[in-house]
Amino acid sequence: MIIDVANHPDRVKELMIFSAIVAGGALIGWLIEQIVLSKLLHLTSRTKWKGDDLIIQSLKGVVLPLFILLAIHIGFNYVTLNPGLLDVLHKTVKVGAILVFTIYLARIVTRWIAGETKEDKSVPSSIILNSTRITIIAVGFLIALQSIGISITPLLTALGVGGLAVALALQPTLSNFFSGLHILATKKVRVGDFIRLDTGIEGYVMDISWRSTLVRQLANNMVIIPNAKLAEAIVINTHLPDKDIPVMVEVGVAYDSDLDLVEKVAIETAQEILKTVEGGVKSFDPAVRFHTFGESSINFTVILRVHEYSQQFLVKHAFVKLLHKRFREKGIEIPFPIRTIITKTP
């Protein structure tokens, strides 16, 4: 807006009034964000319902632009403008307000999804959050166009025809996208799960995006797997149906050992490990199962249990050390491999 001060001295006054109204709106919006919202968050934190926290938190960064747009809308009443220009400016402000509200709504919905998944003890994937955010913003943009008299029917038609061409050109990308949605819908692989593929790749699922799944190996390497490949692979999910997994430790003792004593010492040692070592399931009753007469030992399996896959290594480590110590104290021998050779003389 260009103002000729020499020919229109009243315009200076109008501009000052307009600027004061906008500045006042910005100041009120800033004060509400900095003071009022903080007070409201403190009050809502005391309530049992989490929705009020979500609504207030999402207002951060929204109140200020809304009050600025409202002030601009009010300020137009104090300036003299060409009716056509004024109509365009009012429509611009209207579109801006709709888009700000759309962003606010997208924040609430995505944060609600993230909160619901946390309540379910899972982690939201970026493909769900981003798809939801983009969908809400796209709908808000179409509503904004419709509100100012722009027909969206031709636009939707053009998008339909263009979308078909894009779909043909991006078949691999769309295949990965829909494979990712299928993986999330079936809930057989979730963010945070520890998985092992038939290719030997194993690790924690960090994220399922629109194109690929990110897996962090125990060595802290990141493996990027296309969603289509993951959907077709044979996958072992150690977190389903439960995170708890059994830990098998193979042991062998000499043939002249007292097996009742061996079993008692092994179980007592396992119980102590489960109660003292991080990751052990304290309520689990360990078991001993003898199974093989070996070449130099009677072999058995000690069964322990840990809360999740990666914790088994520390539990095994501590158990082997302590069991070796206890067997030495009780005089129980863990024999070296022995082979008897009988030779015949001619």
Rank of each mutant, 00 (worst) to 15 (best):
I113Y: 12
A114M: 10
G115H: 14
E116F: 07
T117S: 08
E119V: 03
D120I: 06
K121Y: 12
P124N: 09
L129V: 14
N130D: 12
T132I: 08
T132V: 15
I134C: 03
T135H: 05
T135G: 13
I136G: 11
I136W: 05
G140C: 13
G140Y: 03
L142M: 12
L142Y: 09
L142G: 09
I143G: 07
I143Q: 03
I143F: 13
A144S: 14
L145Y: 07
Q146N: 10
S147M: 09
I148M: 11
I148W: 12
G149Q: 09
I150R: 10
S151R: 05
S151F: 02
I152L: 06
P154D: 07
T157S: 02
T157L: 10
A158I: 01
A158D: 03
G160I: 01
V161T: 04
L164N: 01
A165L: 13
A167C: 04
L168D: 05
A169V: 06
P172M: 09
N176A: 06
S179F: 05
S179H: 01
L181K: 01
I183E: 01
I183F: 06
L184Y: 08
L184P: 00
A185D: 08
T186H: 12
K187S: 09
K188Y: 02
V189T: 03
R190V: 02
R190T: 02
G192Q: 14
G192L: 08
G192W: 11
F194D: 02
I195W: 00
R196F: 03
L197H: 05
D198K: 12
T199V: 08
G200M: 04
I201E: 07
E202M: 14
E202T: 09
G203N: 05
D207L: 01
S209L: 07
W210Y: 08
W210L: 15
R211I: 12
S212V: 14
S212G: 03
S212Y: 13
T213M: 10
T213P: 04
L214W: 09
V215C: 10
R216T: 11
A219P: 00
N220L: 12
N220M: 14
V223Q: 05
I225G: 00
N227Q: 06
A228G: 00
A231D: 06
A231M: 13
A231G: 07
I234K: 15
V235M: 09
I236L: 15
N237T: 13
T238Y: 15
T238H: 15
H239T: 14
H239W: 14
